[in-house]
Design a protein around this nucleic acid. Sequence first.
DNA 1: TAATTTTAAATCGCACACGATTTAATCGTA
DNA 2: TACGATTAAATCGTGTGCGATTTAAAATTA
Lengths: 153, 153
Amino acid sequence: MNQETPQLHLENQLCFPLYAASRLMTKMYAPLLKELDVTYPQYLVLLVLWQNGEQTVNAIGSCLLLESNTLTPLLKRLEQKELLVRSRAQHDERVVLVKLTPSGQALKEKAVSIPQQIANLFSDVDLKEEDYATFEKTLAQLVLVLKERSQEV
Amino acid sequence: MNQETPQLHLENQLCFPLYAASRLMTKMYAPLLKELDVTYPQYLVLLVLWQNGEQTVNAIGSCLLLESNTLTPLLKRLEQKELLVRSRAQHDERVVLVKLTPSGQALKEKAVSIPQQIANLFSDVDLKEEDYATFEKTLAQLVLVLKERSQEV
DNA sequence: TAATTTTAAATCGCACACGATTTAATCGTA
DNA sequence: TACGATTAAATCGTGTGCGATTTAAAATTA
């Protein structure tokens, strides 16, 4: 069809492979997360809580680049599952503290094997160690740059 | 906090940087796409139509890795904006053909500058040409592998 | 040909994302 | 101490994504 504007071809965009990879990767996690009865974004919140313990909605958001408009409903769902509790901070009533329940903490034991299970799904992929290292590093750099850019008002 | 399970640390996941990069990248496009009055997924559909011309819902979906459950409502919105028309194929009434309207075709002229504008936003980023090439190649490989895996039933 | 299976979209329900606004608490300053 | 500005969550509305199901048409097969 249109050969005059290759810059608009799907395969020449950086954005699309990122969008595709992100969604496909999430789908790989789906069957594993089903065992935990959580969604992928809920899993990310749990990762943050397992790693850093009790913290504010904003703190979780700054880890995951999400805001209260997304987090509040998500946290309410995790609260309904009794994986965490939300409470107003005493020293500042604006702040909501999020803390794992014992059952939320315990769920970590079921989650520890997930990274290895995901890695196993890639075990047969022939990818140069070196190229993968470059990939991870460049991706991290990209995220950093994008974060900077998005904060510029 | 928890030093015993580094495999669950956010920074050690591959999935999270992909998720973050995808969302941040979409946000970079937002102000440019606002000029066209389309969303990012709508823009992707237009890219496919500009590139390949009239085609079925399934064909668009296989380019973008989306299915009719996502595409049908999205295409209806683009139809309401009069950027495209949907019609049943005569030879097979199950199939819906999607075709740009003149105004949908014309919108391409406003879109051609977008890739360059995005590139300009990265112009000051110090990234080795070579590393970026490796990055793009590895990302494309990753998407291929993930596509294969997701098709395995 | 008639019954069964397959296929393409559409529909449904739920859970994100996110821009924009609102609410309530705290801060900063005159 | 008032009072406007700032801050943290919550709320609201729209638009995806996607698993699951439904609908209707076409293909296959008994």
